[in-house]
C-alpha cells in the first residue's frame, strides 16, 4: 500500500497557477526530495499536503484514506508530522516540555486541568531528545537554544506523534554546513528504522543528492522530472531549468 499518493492537484491564487496537475507518491521508509527554483510552487504543494492550503482540484491520499480537505490536526492524528522552513517551536517552554507537549496532544491529554504537565510523558520525551541528540538541552529554555538545536528539537517534536509520513520544509535552511549533513543522516536513519516516509524540500543540492532516494523537480507549478538522483541530475529539462545555477547540480559530483 502506498503511504502518500498525491493525485493531480491544482492550486491557483487569483488566476496565477501555483501548482498544476501535480501527482506523485511516497513509500514507507523512502526519502523523497521536492526541488525546484524559487517560485516553482514547492511551498504551495507542501502546504497542501500539510493541510495549510486546500487544493482547487485533485486528491491527496494517506494510506488510501482521502485527506484532501482534512485540517492539519486531522492529518497529525492520521500520522503526518512536519517541520517548518522557519523552525516552529514553543519558545516559552524548555526543550523537553516542547516534546512533552506534542506527546500530550498525541495522547489526547491536552484538556486535562489538574495533573502538572511537566510530569507527563517525561521519559518518552527524554528518549526522543536522546534520539536527536539533544539530551543536554532538555531543561534549557527553548528561547536560549542555538538555531541548529532548535531545528533538531523540532524534529523530535515532529517525531513525537509517531508519524508515518514526515514533511520537512527546507530542513537545513539556516544551519551551518557541517550540521546539515549530520541532521539529514539522522533523519534517514530514523526514517529507515521506523519505516517513515519523508518528503522534503531543499535548496542545498548536496543534501538533496546525498540523502534522497528519489527526487521530484517542480517548475512553474508542474513536475518536470522525477526519478533517482542520478536520472534527475542528467535530465536535460532539469539542467535547462537550473541553467542559471547549473553548478548546483554538478557541485556534488
Amino acid at each position: 500500500m502506498t503511504l502518500l499518493s498525491v493525485e493531480s492537484i491544482d492550486k491557483s491564487f487569483g488566476g496565477v497557477a501555483a501548482a498544476r496537475d501535480v501527482g506523485f507518491s511516497v513509500e514507507r521508509g523512502e526519502m523523497v526530495a521536492l526541488i525546484g527554483p524559487n517560485g516553482a510552487g514547492k511551498s504551495t504543494v507542501f502546504n497542501m499536503i500539510g493541510g495549510q492550503l486546500k487544493p482547487d482540484r485533485g486528491r491527496i491520499l494517506l494510506d488510501d484514506a482521502d485527506i484532501t480537505t482534512a485540517s492539519p490536526q486531522e492529518r497529525f492524528r492520521r500520522g503526518v508530522g512536519r517541520t517548518f522552513q522557519v523552525a516552529q517551536t514553543f519558545l516559552s517552554m524548555s526543550g523537553i516540555e516542547n516534546v512533552q507537549m506534542a506527546l500530550i496532544s498525541g495522547h489526547h491529554q491536552s484538556r486535562r486541568l489538574w495533573q502538572p504537565a511537566r510530569t507527563l510523558y517525561r521519559e518518552e520525551a527524554f528518549a526522543l531528545l536522546e534520539c536527536v541528540g539533544m539530551v543536554e538541552a532538555a531543561d534549557r529554555p527553548c528561547s536560549t537554544l542555538a538555531y541548529g538545536d532548535v531545528k533538531r528539537l523540532e524534529l523530535a517534536i515532529a517525531l513525537a506523534g509517531e508519524p508515518k509520513l514526515l514533511l520537512m520544509d527546507e530542513p537545513t535552511a539556516g544551519m551551518a554546513l557541517r550540521e546539515r549533513a549530520a541532521l539529514m543522516d539522522l533523519v534517514s536513519t530514523i526514517a529507515q528504522d521506523a519505516k517513515i516516509g519523508v518528503l522534503f524540500t531543499e535548496h542545498d543540492m548536496d543534501v538533496v543528492f546525498g540523502h534522497a532516494d528519489r527526487v521530484l523537480v517542480l517548475l512553474r507549478g508542474r513536475i518536470i522530472a522525477a526519478g533517482s538522483p542520478e536520472d534527475v541530475r542528467n535530465d536535460p529539462q532539469v539542467r535547462q531549468a537550473y541553467l542559471g545555477d547549473s553548478h548546483a547540480l554538478t557541485r556534488s559530483v
Binding site: G51, Q73, T89
Partner: peptide, 22 residues
Amino acid sequence: DAPFGYALRAMRDSQARAEAIG
C-alpha cells in the same frame, strides 16, 4: 501548569506548530 495551560501557551507561542501537533 496543567496540560491545558501548556496547550494555551503552545498556541500562543506558535499557532502553526500547535496545529501540526494536533
